[in-house]
Write a protein that binds this DNA or RNA. Sequence first.
DNA 1: CACAATACGGAACGCACGTTCCGTATTGGT
DNA 2: ACCAATACGGAACGTGCGTTCCGTATTGTG
Lengths: 201, 201
Amino acid sequence: MGETRRRRRDVVANRARIIEAAESVLREQGLDADMRTIAQAAGVGIGTLYRHFPTREDLVHEITGVDLARLAEQPLPPDLPAADALRHFFTTALGNLAGRRAMVDLLAGAKPGDADLKRCVEHLTGVGRAALARSEDDRTLAADVTASDIAYQFLALARVVQLAPEADIGHHVDLVLRGMERGRGGRHSADVADVRRRAGG
Amino acid sequence: MGETRRRRRDVVANRARIIEAAESVLREQGLDADMRTIAQAAGVGIGTLYRHFPTREDLVHEITGVDLARLAEQPLPPDLPAADALRHFFTTALGNLAGRRAMVDLLAGAKPGDADLKRCVEHLTGVGRAALARSEDDRTLAADVTASDIAYQFLALARVVQLAPEADIGHHVDLVLRGMERGRGGRHSADVADVRRRAGG
DNA sequence: CACAATACGGAACGCACGTTCCGTATTGGT
DNA sequence: ACCAATACGGAACGTGCGTTCCGTATTGTG
């Protein structure tokens, strides 16, 4: 196993430009953007794109993988009751989705078998377990909530992000969290004026 | 105006068979089933299919339209508090979705611009309005819930139907409804044994 | 600078689908 | 039974998109 040449400069440059272009195009056009569009945005031939990422899936992984990791690596904020920490996580994570069409497509639109989706569910279930563990102490979450409940409710909210006006998202998070909180204290973070503002739909 | 021949028998027969086949294929394969597959299932040439339904959309409308109508025409059960009526509606409507891949695809997967999806949102918002009207009297729904909240939460649950194990659906409906109910009475319809049964996620 | 190794661009290919077209078969009316 | 009206089947067409291929350009090395 012998000598090896240094990697050509244009190769690394092109790879970077492709990734950058893919990030932006996928963010704006969603998960099923045309490969040719991405190549063009990168100022690169379609052949070059495919040498770097032999298949569409490879490229999509490269991009969404980063966002996905960010989703899970930054877990529950400490020093907060389980319910509030979970609310914070939901709000932040869903807020980061604004404008990221590819991620929204992935979370809200991926078909049941999809490998990326499974990764998401795993990550989210992990977050759910963490929240439940914390609730062992402070008991702020209802007794019948499971870790996978939390994962699926998050994905359900991702669908809401995809469909509902952005201004309503926080309210929907509230609704869902209210459902998972322990029966008591009716902490309604939206007041009546807020409701008025959000029109009568 | 002039004379008109009687419609040929094979025409009406074929139309019926196409609809029947489309129902079954769409139910099993989802919204993006191949037209050729449907034609074959109907024992009919692809040309015949297209004479009856000039475009894929026409055929899909014919099929999902019925299910959609059923979704909205059978509204809130009377003689029940708003919250319970809504729970009943959610449970029934989502239960009817089991195995109907086309409808699940439509509700859980349709892209934001989709015309069918808009029809759904309208129908569901109507149901939401009805529930809120009833809540004017019994006050079983939280004050900050709007009609469109109800619509989107329903669609969010449709996504859950698509992803989560069927056994968990009822539980998710409970969670969501708990969030929309007026603060008080912690009516948790799932008991601890139930939670155990649904595994730890 | 010369030369081999390596990349590049983008035309071309393959495939899956929706849709159209037309020669042939079936049907209703007489 | 005969004929015109009407449908039928399915080959063929158009399009869009992922992917492959190869002649040409660029780059690292000596």
